[in-house]
Amino acid sequence: MPPFRHFAVMVWRVLRRALSRVVPVAVGVVVIVFFLLRLVPGDPARAVLGDTATQESVDALRAQLGLDLPLWKQFVDFVLQLVTRFDTGDSLVYHESTRVLIAERAPLSLGIVAIAVIVTLLVAIPLAVIAASHKDGPLDHLIRVVPTVGLGMPTFWIGLLLIIVFAVTLKWFPVGGVGTGALEPWRSFVLPAIAVSFAAVPPLVRSLRAQLLDVMDADFVTTLRAAHIPERRIQFRHILRNAAVPSLNLFGVNVAYLIGGTLVVEKVFAINGVGMLLFNSISSRDFPVVQGVALYCAIFVVVITLAVDAISAVIDPRLRAAPSHLVTA
């Protein structure tokens, strides 16, 4: 087979698998987001207009939002809006497209997620390597047990502690908000990102350690050892790379967790990102925005999972033909 055909076939396979899973999930996401807020008790129109509203203006808003239409018609309109405008309507408070509102704030949230990803990897990989290379030793036990403490620590509480220690007392980082300037925003993201990473590290350490142990026992490692390749080089060049693929998948799923944590921690650090938008919209019952945030977060997670899937397929040829094990284990 010529190299190009080979590549094209591979791309096609990855793409087909992706589409066969993405399409139903996308449909599911849209349906959930639509019904999510039809559960709201009370009249959203009155909720938005507040206590000074007359019945006429409430009725007018109901009509404007299409709340007076039959449910199926509302759903059709919702989908059409999604397809034509890529959003869930205009914010009832800001009178702006939810897509624009979210896009404006997304960089802040994504900045935190990005740093959280880096922090998580920087902590998890060395720990996993150390644990695996000291299998069943005291160090291994320590590394398996201690980080699980992070699972039981609420992100917001870690955030509070970090503020007190590293911002108020040591003044290494801003207490909150986002500074202006070239590097200042990144400095503002560090503490929130660390807070978010706490719970993401333990599962990654566990999985990576298990994968490393599997690979260490693999035949090719034995061969390499027999060939007197330095142990350090075996560990980093060969074992880690081979263990990376399954952990990459796990990490893809973890991004969803990091996003959720980021939205919560934004409140603690008063960072005006997507999370803050979500909480404000909940206070003001701005339901198109709540829907938009849920929708865009889900889409982002799906895209990340897909990307991880594709990257794994590229790294590890064995996966190209195999049935996907990505989203569903």
Binding site: I163, A167, V168, V175, G176, A270, N272, N280
Partner: peptide, 18 residues
């Protein structure tokens, strides 16, 4: 007018001179 949607943060930021 800077939006800081949390009054504990307001407090800490004015103490820190932010």
């Amino acid at each position: 007018y800077k939006l800081v949607a949390d009054d504990t943060q307001l407090l800490q930021q004015v103490q820190a001179g932010q």
